[in-house]
Design a protein around this nucleic acid. Structure first.
Lengths: 358, 358
DNA sequence: CTGAAAGCGCTTACAG
DNA sequence: CTGAAAGCGCTTACAG
């Protein structure tokens, strides 16, 4: 394997023209009317010499790189790490390589990545958008470079996307709390105009409003995405202290949930007795917490598979001038212990108070 | 940006030869004695036209792809996901792309990946080896393709590697348990002849032997890497039931720890009262468990940075005929609640028993 | 059925 | 100081 064999070597050894060999390699034997005997000879020698075509030369000639770009928010996080794994696996099955990168939600990083991937002539890209990306994505569309948005859409941009039904996830989670007897529910989220966060917030508010219980109370805390962990934790601690009548906490993202649980530990509140807890987006270990954490879980594998399949369809069939495709997948409510039905004694107490009023 | 500009376009617009433009682009103006005026004109137009050289053409001509391959065990796991993130970031800073893949510890997958990356002409690779990879890695060496092993070495192969001091990590963890009063310590690991697992086991046994307490007892459970989660959990449950006098459990990997904790929940043993627990390799959330889990933690960022730096040094300076470089990094013992000093009452009981004997 | 040749966009001896 | 030209390894009209 010291020196890579080229198509020329194969042709020479077989005393055929390069053209013929190339046709066989690209499965055009039949179409080009190459005899089966010739074809088989070529195939055999290719295997014997362990020949594989030079991707760079091919790309230079055809413009097809058989590489796609995958831009996620944070490879180190459970959701995106597993998305990346599945995307890579599926792409690999179909003969594609994948370039992988994290934006950490920084628009400048995202812009640079898109630029870099374009320069690397990827055949298409999967993009977890940050904000301020409208121009770059419009350029991609104009230049007919296929891409699929992952996890969230971009306001004002019509593009292919695979997302979760964030509204439903948040709505169900809130209703679950209400049904289990929690009425004063705090919603902890980040300041963001990205679609998935807006939808989750809307789900929370809609569920709260649709509950006709009068003592329901909406309480919202928003932190900044790039605040430090310590800062987020202390914000949540204050939020909890400032709202002593709060009965439950809804964390709008996985990492907020993690910080939130840490905050509750620090203020000495226990779940679910002092405060019930639910979280959007599961984490590998939430099921092992004490108590285990109720979540709205994303079908990670399905998201990844749908996304890569959609992208490769666009790559291989070209972009039709249809309107963009939007896949919306269903989250799953996983009820665990952190939000079990409000203990009976509490209900009794409430009843007593009502009695006293009468 | 509809049509990509080429070096020819730039040359034509400036009425220069392609050669001159190429020299400027590659920073050889000075060396080749190109006037500063010309040089600046070129640089300006390049910026204006947003020109960037075609990587494929460059690779075809020079053989340098500015791409490295990263092969990990499992992108979806906390350790490797974060390794990948940092490697990608550092590589990016230095102008390299990275191809990323998971082996799931399957030798055939690993072989196919190495092959694929070679065909993609990567400049070098970072490889988390599986077993049976000796031939492929020897080939890489013979063909002077730089690579660095990550996380573990391969028996019988002398190669560049960045690994953890697994022996020390396991030794310290065991000593920590012994010091805190636990003597019958069970070691849960996988059947594996990979270096990191062997070292961890050696660390455990050495620590146990060096303890001169007579009632110290060694207990070992090994499961298969590709056993299902359910299967591993039930093995651990049996192990715990069959050894009622066991006082502590040492999990040799992160995911074994996770399964182990689940198993303990199921048999109704509580940590650390019934069984103390320590785990090799931290997990993002172990600190938030009840009780929090004592671990030997790997310096993920440092591992990633050292690895990519070593690889790029090899890629850029060529492989010297020195002996391979082996970086061994230090794990950190993080003492948490799952292994706190054996409760006083237990010690008292032991004392009483001793008294009775007298 | 098969071959000679152009050309993808670069880099780099070679020549002035 | 600068240019004409070869060649990296492919694919694909075009010609027989």
């Amino acid at each position: 394997m010291t020196k890579k064999v080229s198509i020329k070597d194969i042709a020479k050894e077989l005393e055929l023209s390069i053209t013929t060999v190339s046709f066989v390699i690209n499965g055009k034997s039949e179409e080009m009317g190459i005899s089966e005997a010739t074809s088989n000879k070529v195939l055999e020698l290719i295997k014997k010499r362990d020949y594989s075509p030079n991707n760079a030369a091919r790309l230079l000639r055809t413009g097809k790189s058989n590489t796609i770009g995958l831009i996620v928010e944070d490879l180190g996080n459970y959701f995106f790490g597993n998305i990346a794994k599945v995307v890579e696996l599926e792409a690999s099955k179909r003969g594609y390589n994948v370039f992988l990168s994290s934006t950490d939600n920084n628009p400048n990083t995202a812009k640079a990545l898109i630029r870099k991937m374009r320069n690397s002539s990827v055949d298409g890209m999967i993009i977890t958008p940050t904000k301020e990306l409208n121009q770059e994505l419009e350029d991609l569309k104009n230049d007919k470079i296929p891409f699929v948005l992952l996890d969230r859409t971009v306001p004002g941009l019509s593009a292919n996307a695979v997302v979760l039904d964030n509204f439903k996830g948040a709505f169900d989670l809130t209703v679950h709390l209400l049904n289990n007897g929690y009425q004063k529910i705090g919603f902890v989220s980040i300041h963001s105009d990205m679609s998935q966060m807006i939808e989750r917030e809307r789900g929370y508010f809609d569920a709260m409003e649709s509950s006709n219980k009068s003592c329901t109370k909406e309480l919202v805390l928003k932190v900044k995405f790039d605040d430090s962990a310590a800062c987020i934790i202390s914000s949540i601690m204050s939020f909890v202290r400032d709202n002593p009548d709060m009965e439950a906490l809804f964390f709008a993202t996985n990492y907020l949930g993690v910080h939130g649980i840490e905050a509750l530990k620090q203020v000495g509140k226990s779940m679910p007795d002092d405060l019930a807890v639910v979280c959007f987006d599961d984490n590998d270990l939430f099921r092992l917490f004490t108590p285990s954490i109720t979540v709205s879980s994303q079908p990670i594998k399905q998201i990844a598979v749908e996304t890569i399949e959609l992208l490769l369809r666009l790559v291989e069939n070209g972009i039709k001038h249809e309107s963009p495709i939007n896949k919306v997948l269903e989250p799953e409510l996983i009820e665990r212990q952190s939000s079990i039905q409000k203990p009976l004694w509490e209900i009794e107490q409430t009843l007593k108070k009502s009695f006293n009023k009468i």
